[in-house]
């Protein structure tokens, strides 16, 4: 289909664009998010060094302070760690893993939560009662505990030699499974409202089956809140991943995420090499804060009561 003339004009005049332009915090948060995402996604090309290429590492460069401090080298802007790896490069590669895991976990959560919520809301009855009670039970545990539990079970159940290679999928699953309840509850609530609207009845009279009605009619009308929850959930998922990695049950030091970097760097905090742990920590804060600010703005902008 040809793009209608003036689509740019229409997008510019749209409510969302208008509210975006009026919020400097959101603009800054967007720029920071884009910087983080861009730096993370293109780390192999943008990073000044490849921290995983053992050939380029030189133990003689170890514990170099940031460039602006006495003894710092311009080659290593944020200094180096105990292996002589450039901290800036490890942060970029770490953020890549953190973001990847976070986004995948959110996608998994959303897929599971939205499907279950839609099904429960539309079908109702015993299925609904059962799934929602499971959700209630799960909500009484902290998310991190569930992620720890799943992670621990996976470690016991799976052979030891596969641990490192499947660490990322296991982490995505354990973070994802701890977050589906919010999606399911929200979608179920909206579905309960939508399924009694007349357009759904019209589709039933036409002869559409329940699955087609759920996917084609109800789903597009319940996705708005999911977008908001998803954006805010990205920050939480990244934090959960960092926490797990910090506790040592997440990603191994061979494929470090921001959380792993913070944990490893923590060992040197008291011996004076603060930059090894502080800069990954700052990167984590900036990343999560900007994503959360973006999510908050989206929630307010899409809420008709706050307009």
């Amino acid at each position: 289909m040809a793009v209608a003339p003036g689509w740019w004009r229409r997008a510019w005049d749209h409510d969302l664009a208008w509210s975006f332009r009026r919020s400097p915090v959101t603009i800054v948060a967007t720029l920071l998010t884009l910087a983080c995402f861009g730096g993370a996604a293109f780390a192999p090309w943008l990073a000044p060094h490849n921290p995983f290429d053992l050939a380029t590492l030189n133990l003689g460069d170890a514990f170099a302070p940031p460039a602006w401090i006495e003894g710092g080298q311009p080659r290593f802007v944020l200094g180096t760690d105990d292996q002589g790896r450039d901290v800036l490069s490890t942060i970029m590669h770490g953020a890549r893993i953190s973001l990847g895991v976070g986004l995948a976990a959110v996608a998994f959560s959303a897929l599971l939560g939205v499907s279950l919520g839609l099904l429960c809301g539309y079908v109702g009855g015993r299925l609904d009662a059962f799934v929602m009670r499971v959700a209630d039970i799960q909500l009484s545990f902290p998310a991190i505990l569930i992620a720890l539990l799943v992670d621990g079970v996976a470690r016991v159940a799976l052979p030891r030699e596969t641990h490192d290679s499947i660490a990322i999928p296991v982490l995505i699953f354990s973070i994802g499974i701890s977050g589906w309840v919010q999606y399911a509850r929200t979608v179920r609530g909206s579905t309960l409202v939508e399924k009694n609207r007349e357009y759904v009845q019209a589709a039933r009279v036409i002869g559409r089956g329940p699955v087609a009605i759920m996917v084609h009619h109800v789903l597009p009308n319940v996705m708005g809140p999911v977008l908001v929850i998803g954006t805010i959930h990205i920050g939480t998922a990244i934090i959960t991943e960092a926490t797990l990695s910090f506790l040592g049950v997440g990603l191994p030091p061979t494929q470090p995420s921001l959380g792993t970097l913070i944990r490893v760097g923590n060992d040197f905090l008291f011996s004076g090499e603060w930059w090894i742990t502080v800069f990954p920590g700052l990167a984590l804060i900036v990343l999560v804060l900007s994503v959360n600010l973006l999510g908050d703005w989206l929630r307010d902008a899409l809420n008709p009561k706050l307009r």
Binding site: E198, Y199, Q201, A202, V205, I206, G207, H217, P220, N221
Partner: peptide, 23 residues
Amino acid sequence: AFALRRRMQMIFQDPYASLNPRW
């Protein structure tokens, strides 16, 4: 009787609720 249902259709009361807003 499923085939018979095709021969009847319904018009609803609320014109604001009977059309899917996303279509």
